[in-house]
Design a protein around this nucleic acid. Sequence first.
DNA 1: GTCTATGATTGTGC
DNA 2: GCACAATCATAGAC
Length: 365
Amino acid sequence: MDDQTRMLTGLTGLSGLAQADVGDPDAVRKQSLGQPQQDIGDILQQIMAITDESLDEAQARKHALNCHRMKPALFSVLCEIKEKTVLSIRGVQEEDPPDPQIMRLDNMLLAEGVSGPEKGGGSAAAAAAAAAAGGSPTDSSIEHSDYRAKLAQIRQIYHSELEKYEQACSEFTNHVMNLLREQSRTRPISPKEIERMVAIIHRKFSSIQMQLKQSTCEAVMILRSRFLDARRKRRNFNKQATEVLNEYFYSHLSNPYPSEEAKEELAKKCGITVSQVSNWFGNKRIRYKKNIGKFQEEANLYAVKTAVDAANVSAQASQANSPATPNSGQCGITMLYFNCSIIQVTGMYVCSFISKANLKIPKMR
DNA sequence: GTCTATGATTGTGC
DNA sequence: GCACAATCATAGAC
């Protein structure tokens, strides 16, 4: 408003300028008082009234004002005002550092595969989530595809909205730039100022962009939490996996704490995660300890099974060796003792043990 | 619907 | 970080 007042004050002093002097600010200043002020009054009135007119009328009025004989004088006064005011503007706008919140949102969208390259986007996140969920590959494949499909949907919406935003921003920027360029004919506007205006527009639009990113992040978080909640939907391990785990547990009953390597091996064998193996052993130890009696039968079964497997391995090894080798007889005796111990422990399972193992029990001497 | 088995989670202690 | 203990939540049998 101050500028406008100053401008008006300045203009009132222009009234008596000769046509030849209008381009010269000094001449403008020199000739001041005593001249008719009608022209200035008219021109100001026209400028102030221009916003109340229709578009066509305003265009016509603008053209008329551009051709007005006082226009160069007006321009020079505006230049002078600009010179004075630009100092206060200069330095105000410096390069803003990147907004940390936008950076966080960008990083998250990138990590979730919403922004950035599409290839594999989301599948890594889905796999990680699935690993945490602990489902077997086949079990979780349906959930994976569902997760990926929904993530792709979010991605699509995000990009489409982003495109719309960028288009709107670009359209608006172009519009403002054109407007400023046009206005630069009647008032002094440097290219740098246009750039600054563009930066201001972009800053304004970036808040919209941040909202878009924020809501996209929220959508991803909701999707992710829903997907991870599925882990509470317990699925029993398959029979083979349980057998493998039980075999290990009962064959290491004196120390049922598998090492990290053993856990990994078991996890691989069972098609489950290492943490699931840990969970299983944790549950098993405590439940076994609480009710050893209940688990005794199971323990016996697996002890037999382990023994059979061991015996099979020994038998195969001894068959592979020559019967004439000095060790063969010794091996047979060892096996017999082993078998006897199994009979003592298991009692009722001995028959099935022998039939299953299809062992050739070595003759006693 | 109830009960049991079982995988997962949580809080605690070392 | 790991193990334990308690608990939750669900699958599956009946």
